Amino acid sequence: MYFLLNVIGIFVVIGLVYLCSPEKRDVKWKAIFLLLIAELLMTWFMLSTTIGTWVINQIASFFTWLVDCANQGISFVFPSAMGNEQIDFFFSALMPIIFIVTFFDILTYFGILTWLIDKVGWLISKLSGLPKLESFFSIQMMFLGNTEALAVIRHQLSVLREQRLLTFGIMSMSSISGSIIGAYLSMVPATYVFVAIPLNCLNALLIANMLNPIKVSKEEDIVYVPDKAERKDFFSTISNSMLVGIRMVIVITAMVIGYVALTAAVNGILGVFVHGLTIQKIFSIIFSPFAYLLGLTGDDAMYVAQLMGIKLATNEFVAMLDLKDQIRSLAPHTIAVAVTFLTSFANFSTVGMIYGTFNSILDEQKSHIIGRNVWRMLVSGMAVSLLSAMVVGLFIW
């Protein structure tokens, strides 16, 4: 019964996104079908086979090693904080970002990450029949994050027509950054984080193809490759990466503190009018139909609906912190779909980040395409997260 609801949920989400599409006739259904098949096969491989489980464990071990290396640096500067039996979220989850950002930038500097992104992007383009640049970007933002990935292809974005620019804005709602994975792993199970990352990549392409279908000529279907002359020297690169990392830590810290405090304030105001009413309860009602379509029941459905709302209104960190405290009392299927849903940057603040990035790398007129289509971006972010969670839910009960 609940498995069937989970299956129906996939078709409901795709159907709702299709209804939101302003150009329904141009939707490439073949590409959507191929991407869905690829997602199902990939998820089955990663969750239901010995080799797939081994691959996830190796990736998780690699990121655990990265975090351990980061902790060495943190312990040198903050030995008393790291020596505590229970380490604060700031030190355990956020401070490692400084080293992980630097590590990924080193891989990019030597062309290792760039090569990987290029090859996998080419493969996805061949599989789906969608443009190379969009396929390339979906992989790129999976490792680098949305704003960083947009900056890397800024030269090509500057010559694209507005309608195609919107595709990149829509896709940017579904990214994460490789530098942030360590923080996720300190709160939720690694398995579902690493399954969600490639699923979000494919679903971003799928949803963008429905919400903003466009035709690209062969002359337009190219990928910009940065010139070697644009690169700084190695030590300038890693020094800048460390500064970028600490800025990310400060921004995320401010957002978590601010949003948790704001939620508490809103709950206090709501409680004056209706005793016991909270923003979490309101969200749990609004998103409950989608939670039931994830194959959930009763209290679990209402709790995951609440997490959905928290993520959209604040960010995934606030929702993951809540989930971390409840995770031992939840069923395996509930944990799988909840973690998968939360593993992305889809929220209101991300829209502002994307608009700001477009405004800084393009002219103001072109960046208005984002401001005029906020609703499409929010629909995309939620739809991608729901689809990824529904696909994972099919394999964990």
Rank of each mutant, 00 (worst) to 15 (best):
G245L: 15
M210E: 00
V216E: 02
R247K: 15
F235P: 02
E230W: 04
S239H: 14
L206K: 05
D233K: 07
K218S: 06
K218Q: 04
L206G: 03
V223R: 04
G245K: 12
P226T: 01
T237H: 11
M242Y: 13
M242N: 14
A229P: 05
S239V: 14
T237C: 11
L206Q: 06
L205D: 07
E220K: 06
K218P: 01
D221V: 08
D221K: 04
M210R: 01
L205E: 08
V216M: 03
I222N: 06
S239D: 09
T237I: 10
Y224V: 09
E219I: 13
V216T: 08
M210T: 02
D233E: 08
D227Q: 11
Y224Q: 10
K228H: 05
E220Q: 12
F234D: 05
S217E: 06
M210K: 00
N203D: 12
N240T: 15
K215N: 03
L211S: 06
I207N: 00
V223P: 03
D227V: 07
S217H: 03
N209S: 13
V225K: 06
F234N: 06
S241V: 14
G245D: 15
S217R: 04
E219A: 12
L211M: 10
K218G: 00
I214G: 00
V225C: 01
K218E: 05
S236F: 03
I246E: 12
L205Y: 09
K218D: 02
K215Q: 02
V244P: 04
A229I: 14
V216Y: 02
K232F: 05
K228C: 05
G245H: 14
L243E: 10
M210V: 08
C201Y: 12
S241L: 14
D227M: 09
V216R: 02
N203L: 08
R231F: 07
D227S: 14
D227F: 09
D221G: 05
D233V: 04
D227R: 11
D233W: 02
F235W: 12
N212C: 01
L202K: 08
I207S: 01
P213T: 00
A208T: 15
M242P: 14
L202R: 09
S239R: 15
L211H: 04
L206S: 05
S236Q: 09
L206P: 03
L243Y: 11
N209M: 01
Y224C: 09
M242E: 13
V244E: 14
R247I: 09
L211A: 08
L202V: 13
F235R: 06
L243G: 10
L205M: 15
S239P: 11
G245Y: 14
D227K: 14
E220F: 07
S236L: 05
F235Q: 02
K215D: 02
N240P: 08
V225E: 02
V223M: 04
K218R: 07
D221L: 08
C201T: 15
P213A: 00
I246H: 12
E230R: 06
R247D: 14
V223L: 02
G245T: 15
L243H: 10
Y224N: 11
E230L: 12
F234M: 08
A229L: 10
A229H: 11
M210L: 11
I222H: 07
I222A: 05
F235S: 05
S236G: 05
N212G: 01
L205T: 10
F235D: 04
K218L: 03
S217D: 07
V223K: 04
N203F: 14
N240K: 15
R231I: 01
E230N: 07
S217W: 04
